[in-house]
Design a protein around this nucleic acid. Sequence first.
DNA 1: CCAGAAACTTTGAACGATCTAATCCTGCCC
DNA 2: GGGCAGGATTAGATCGTTCAAAGTTTCTGG
Lengths: 329, 329
Amino acid sequence: MAEKVTIATVARHAQVSRQTVSNVLNAPHIVREETRRRVQEAISALGYRANQAARQMRTGRSRLIAVRIEPTRDGINGSVLDRFLHGLTETADAAGYRVMLYTARDDDQEIATYDDLLGAYDLDAFVLTGTKHGDPRTAWLAEREVPFVTFGRPWDALDGHPWVDVDGAAGTAQVTRHLLDAGHQRIAFLGWPAGSGVGDDRYAGWRTTMTAAGHDVAGLRRESEDGIAEGERELRDLLAHDVPPTAVVCASDSLALGALQAARDSAAPVAVVGFDDTPVAAAVGLSSVSQPLSAAAARCVDLLTTLLDGQPTDHRVLLTPTLVLRHTA
Amino acid sequence: MAEKVTIATVARHAQVSRQTVSNVLNAPHIVREETRRRVQEAISALGYRANQAARQMRTGRSRLIAVRIEPTRDGINGSVLDRFLHGLTETADAAGYRVMLYTARDDDQEIATYDDLLGAYDLDAFVLTGTKHGDPRTAWLAEREVPFVTFGRPWDALDGHPWVDVDGAAGTAQVTRHLLDAGHQRIAFLGWPAGSGVGDDRYAGWRTTMTAAGHDVAGLRRESEDGIAEGERELRDLLAHDVPPTAVVCASDSLALGALQAARDSAAPVAVVGFDDTPVAAAVGLSSVSQPLSAAAARCVDLLTTLLDGQPTDHRVLLTPTLVLRHTA
DNA sequence: CCAGAAACTTTGAACGATCTAATCCTGCCC
DNA sequence: GGGCAGGATTAGATCGTTCAAAGTTTCTGG
């Protein structure tokens, strides 16, 4: 094994001092052109790589971002976080940051983990997912002035932290408009119980578009927990009515997949559109709203890096999802 | 914000030297009972947490494990890695290690990333997933004596590195036995093209059990790429034969989900069993073989920690999956 | 040709932990 | 009471980097 290559090795090799090498790396503009080139050559010749531990000890910055990985409750929706995580890892990588994982059972434990991670690893920032009303985590982090970004907007108006989110209402609105254009009149909505920010948002897009087009939405909305069985049950129930809907907008692919089962048994055809464009939807041919997850992840990293560089940023980023049409609508 | 608590702060508070505090943390047995207690009290009173960066610089060990996160090719099977990752994060946490992520497009890039991570972060170990024939990654790591464990056995007999895997053959054998016991005689197998270690393994369990029970397997096996559409196509094809199978063992839940579609249209009932017990299977009521992913992750961490402590271990761990019965078999 | 500024480079200290080696006890034996 | 073993504790050096301050060279203008 080759002996360790430190900044001193490079300095000797390039016939300059350690500090000059350090300057080439961290503030290239203050080093003379010719010296810089010589140092750069020495670096690549020796295969030098800065030791992050030493750098971190001195600067207090670790170039490490922490992200929570959730227990997969529902495999279908779980893939959303999975893809987000992948995008995050990739863009963070490009920006010179690494992603560190942690798990937590509940908010209290998650906050305890923050404390742990900050103490032991000097983490630079956190990315939170799945924000909800009255989130204690954001308050804790904000109080300690720890940089963080949430994927998911704060549902309480008072929170002023940076966030990135996908405009769910715009997504369902787009779906509804598409169905209206296709001639549908009675378009139902299958969503989650009121109170979850994300669910309410997706519901709003449908309702607004329907009423704007002059359609009555009474009796066309169903609420249930997320799940395939639930989706099937709710649509079956809706179809049993006097004037059944001819199309249904769903708040998730799980619900849509269930709805698809119910639709198959129906006499009249029923258009079904899901949300999240999970790979399962792609495989089954289910039309769905696709969240720009890579872009969202990239924006999260963008916000964090500018934040960490001490520059001010426009705190909020709202991305528009796109409708992916397949066989079911 | 409270001022930084270092080992020196604790030492002053407990009226001992820095080294004694360090000993309490790293070699408690050489410190006198009473002193140890006093130091422990100071630690918790001050909320001291060892700075990993400083520790790492001195010891060269980072208490960091790197794991690759793959682009989700198939959302259904992707959840397997997701759950493994969750288990890994949890057990690593308990053992005092953290999980760091990285991505890579291909083997070469992955190896370049190893080099990067080792140079910059002094990673302690790697966990590789998805081993295949002639894997260049294991060779690279072994050559440099970097500790690593693979989730998935080495399919080339010569590799002697530590690994954890799930006995796929035992899984399909169990399924086949169950179906035989239930009175089925013509049991088909839907698998992947020969050559992938995992696929061949799962196929072997079915074939061995069938022939051991005196059944001819000719014409009962189908091969295709993974996917729902592929599963449907293959089973439909099988069912069109003179003497159609009454049950089918699948190498994945994706294939099984497709098979389920085909089975629904069949005149005679066809039992279907998948593999991996993904949440989709649970939602749809598909019987499936469940991999003990948390246990696998735990064993990976076990192997790594003993490896890192310089102790010898039994290199191989083969876990047995369990059959989860639902509606479809 | 020299003062003074500007540009660049060097030196020594510091970050917070661990390692090595030296010192201090304490008890025990002769 | 002196000598000594052996455990418990301490002091000083060190890991690789960046910061702060001091040093050196180069350039400019009078």
